[in-house]
């Protein structure tokens, strides 16, 4: 997936300074690859192949080795995502306490399948492994926040609160 036109895969001067700061934190600069990819995702919205090549250049790595890393971890998005990401836990405790109902409700409300993004680009819906908040099962992650003890009413309120 190529970056959409207009998204320039290029860090600003300040971001490049942050890259260098991160690289200097570790005994080997390669260790900053995950943090820099996180920075890239924040800056470019997702990690396109161009972004992988760009980051590879910042680390003197072959693009294949960056691609290995990007495809290994679930938190790197390789395609544009919605403005908000809703990740419903489907692991054991949440499953016992109704994760499937929560997910079905969200699919219906948003009109998307798991992995899909609403046509308005607002929400990407995911179904994920244990987020380690089983005490609030069934739960989900909404961007940076954990939301638990989910009911249809609560899901509605959370969705309404999203900008």
């Amino acid at each position: 997936m190529r970056a959409p036109a207009g998204v320039k895969v290029q860090f600003t001067g300040g971001q490049l300074q942050e890259v260098r700061r991160l690289q200097a934190l570790y005994p080997d600069k390669r260790a900053a690859l995950l943090p820099v990819l996180q920075l890239a995702q924040a800056a470019f919205g997702y990690i396109s192949l161009e972004a992988e090549e760009y980051v590879a250049g910042l680390f003197d790595l072959s693009p294949a080795h960056v691609h290995e890393v990007v495809t290994f971890y679930t938190l790197f998005f390789r395609e544009p995502k919605g403005r908000h990401v809703v990740s419903v836990c489907h692991n054991l405790t949440c499953h016992l306490l109704g994760a499937r109902r929560v997910l079905a409700y969200l699919k219906e409300r948003l009109g998307v399948e798991v992995g899909g993004t609403t046509p308005d680009g607002k929400v990407t819906l995911l179904s994920v492994e244990c987020l380690c908040a089983c005490e609030m099962a069934p739960m989900m992650q909404v961007d940076d926040r954990y939301e638990g003890h989910l009911t249809p009413e609560l899901v509605d309120r959370i969705l309404e609160g999203l900008g």
Partner: peptide, 10 residues
């Protein structure tokens, strides 16, 4: 101390 964040892998 360096605080390092993972990226999603059990």
């Amino acid at each position: 101390v360096v605080v390092h964040r993972g990226a999603g892998a059990y």
